[in-house]
Design a protein around this nucleic acid. Structure first.
Length: 631
RNA sequence: GCCGGUGUAGCUCAGUGGUAGAGCACACGACUCAUAAUCGUGCUGUCCGGAGUUCGACUCUCCGCACCGGCACCA
């Protein structure tokens, strides 16, 4: 027996959980359940990240104290995990004492390692850019390449972690442990990041108040990302060096979406190296979900309506679909129509109907499950296939190939349907053949029992339902053929997956179309005086010509007519507008913005556009003379 | 623009240096124990395009196109 510690990220509480979170946790849940099935000692962590300025702001907007806000938000996550049947062993909140104390201990250790140093963070700073210029970008004149303004020499107090020091060790580790980052595409990506060099990272924020103070300098709050990573250890009781911690650290799998691999595969291991602790075994990244081919977007109201689909098809169908249809690691397109197809074809027709037909025959012809007294054709093949299915499943799960894993199980399901068909069991209810009939039905039920065990990590409720109908009172996880006792009283109930016809589904459509989510009110924190506003010179202009800028995906160079003069402007809208589509359009530009050079092209103004998940140019309701002031 | 990946039946995808496969969908047939289920048979493909290596390439090399991801760019 080995141990298996799997973690999901801890999610920011400044928003409701969505389908992406659900996917991460379901995948992790499948792995956790599978390992438990194999007899491993499993610890499964999920939780929420409650600190940092984003949470602070969200609380303010909600008119709550940060802690109050967190207390209100955390249950939206726990409720979802219950709904999705997530079998986590702990739900960690970063405002818990356990976490805070553990974090302090870790930070102290990190500090004592000598790899933390206090600024002064000195560098050339551009105020309009609000950022420091890295060495690489500095010119001899020490001028901001964007604003053409002299850079200021600035010193800011900050704590840093010597990430750069670990570049070689990280490289070596990734090379020596090919499994460390999964899938390989992410691994390659991170190797290329490593090869281009690491810079030290700031681990504290002086301007933030909602968080954990550095134990060695209470004036500073630990940067929320750094704090969050430590949760994987604090959740085990790192602070007290508990038995739990001794048993389970290092983590076997850190599961996450692809966007946060850098923190987990580079920064976190380097931090652990610094304090001389073992590294997690595997960083595993999955892709993002899209919906009917479109990126999810709050503002455009594109989201996955889990509630409706779970209501229509049941939780297990939802879990099954996510695991069966998506190729793990790649982005997956969530399509309710596909869920529907999978539900009817795989769950209702193949599996549900198989159980139903076999139990029907047992009910009609026997008192309880018949004993397998009379071997015959195909029996050995079925039994052998049970074993190969078990073996192949294991290989696929090791490789995170959940789609292949389920496909393998379903090949077996289909084989049993064929077995029933080939043997024509229903014709054997005659005195001379009834023992053979009983044997075939026993074999079919035993196959179904093993199938129920194999699918239990994916669709646990269904697995239980199957065993209940077979007549088992306690869930039997044995994978040995023949474990099913004869004479059990079966209790054939309602079909476990009643077919859902399309009409029904269509009726649900209006509901699914739903409400584009209302944009959360964003409180404007920085008020601007009217005088300041008046400084802006906004004007109506027309685009005369537009062309892409070579070497930049997002930029378009445009000639615009202001009535009195013509200007050249650069705008980052190439991903949303083609050059041709722009010509002739009336738009609004900021006419008195200081010129800037972008990608060696001078921009003498700025075009206004709504800018969120998509980008839409700002125009006037009706055309007006060029040069008209906008205010 | 740089780095990496993908491009195979209507759909989702597997695959091998020797002239292509699975599931779904579709058509026809069988069967009737079962949830209009199941089983069988069949169906369609310029295996992205071009050039090259080879006796022979979908599979290797190069060039190109499209799409996806990472980085840069986003006044």
């Amino acid at each position: 027996m080995s141990k298996f510690y799997i973690t999901t990220p801890i999610y920011y509480v400044n928003g409701e959980p969505h389908a992406g979170h659900a996917y991460t946790n379901i995948v992790s849940d499948v792995l956790a359940r599978y390992r438990r099935l194999k007899g491993d000692k499993v610890y499964f962590l999920t939780g929420v990240d409650e600190h940092g300025s984003n949470v602070h702001k969200a609380a303010e907007n909600a008119g709550l104290a940060p802690q109050e806000y967190c207390d209100k938000m955390a249950p939206t996550f726990t409720k979802l995990w219950e709904r999705l049947n997530i079998s986590n062993d702990i739900f960690l909140r970063t405002t818990s004492d356990m976490h805070k104390r553990g974090a302090l201990k870790f930070l102290t250790a990190l500090y004592n390692s000598g790899d933390v140093y206090k600024g002064p963070y000195e560098g050339y700073y551009c105020r309009p850019c609000e950022r420091f210029f890295p060495e690489k970008e500095l010119t001899d004149e020490k001028i901001c390449t964007i604003h053409k303004l002299p850079l200021e020499w600035l010193e800011e107090e900050n704590y840093f972690f010597k990430l750069s020091k670990y570049q070689d060790r990280l490289l070596a580790h990734i090379h020596e442990n090919p499994q460390f980052i999964h899938p390989e595409s992410r691994r390659n990506e991170l190797l290329s990041v490593l090869n281009s060099g690491l810079e030290d990272i700031s681990i504290s924020r002086a301007s933030v108040s909602w968080g954990i103070s550095l134990p060695f300098d209470p004036e500073h709050i630990v940067y929320v990302w750094i704090e969050a990573l430590m949760n994987y250890m604090t959740a085990l009781g790192y602070e007290t060096d508990s038995e739990q911690y001794q048993t389970f650290w290092p983590a076997d799998v850190h599961m996450m979406a692809k966007d946060i691999t850098r923190f987990h595969a580079l920064i976190w291991p380097a931090m652990l190296m610094a304090v001389n602790l073992p590294l997690p075994k595997q960083i595993v990244a999955h892709g993002w979900l899209t919906k009917d081919g479109e990126a999810l977007s709050k503002t455009r109201g594109i989201f996955i309506d889990m509630d409706t689909d779970i209501e229509t098809y049941g939780l297990d169908a939802f879990r099954y679909y996510l695991m069966r249809e998506f190729s793990f690691g790649n982005d997956g397109d969530y399509r309710p129509a596909r869920l529907h197809a999978r539900y009817n074809a795989d769950l209702a027709n193949d599996l549900g109907n198989l159980l139903n037909r076999v139990l029907g025959l047992v009910n009609k012809n026997f008192e309880g499950i018949p004993a397998p007294t009379t071997p015959g054709e195909f029996d050995d093949e079925i039994e052998a296939m049970a074993q190969t299915t078990i073996d192949q499943l294991d290989a696929h799960i090791q490789a995170f190939a959940f789609d292949a894993a389920l496909e393998t199980i379903w090949e077996f399901v289909r084989r049993i349907n064929r077995y029933v068909q080939q043997t024509e069991v229903w014709t054997l209810a005659k005195p001379e053949t009834i023992p053979r009939m009983g044997t075939i039905l026993y074999n079919s039920l035993e196959a179904l029992r093993i199938i129920s065990v194999l699918i239990s990590p994916f669709i646990p409720d269904t697995a239980e339902k199957i065993q209940k109908q077979i007549g088992l009172t306690e869930f039997d996880t044995a994978l040995e053929w023949g474990h099913l006792p004869a004479d059990l009283a079966v209790s054939r109930g309602e079909p476990i997956f009643p077919r859902v016809d399309i009409k029904k589904q269509k009726q649900q459509q209006p509901k699914a179309e739903a409400k584009p989510q209302q944009k959360k009110e964003q409180k404007t924190t920085n008020l601007v005086s009217f005088a300041d506003f008046q400084k802006l010179d906004l004007r109506v202009a027309r685009i005369l010509a537009a062309e892409p800028i070579e070497g930049a995906d997002r930029l378009l160079k445009m000639q615009v007519d202001l009535g009195t003069e013509k200007r050249q402007v650069v705008a980052g809208i190439a991903e949303h507008y083609t050059a041709e589509a722009l010509v002739g359009k009336q738009i609004i530009i900021v006419a008195n913005l200081e010129p800037a050079t972008i990608r060696n092209v001078e921009s003498q103004g700025m075009i206004l556009a709504g800018s969120g998940d998509s980008v839409v140019l700002a125009t006037l309701e009706e055309e007006m003379p060029l040069g008209t002031q906008v205010r």
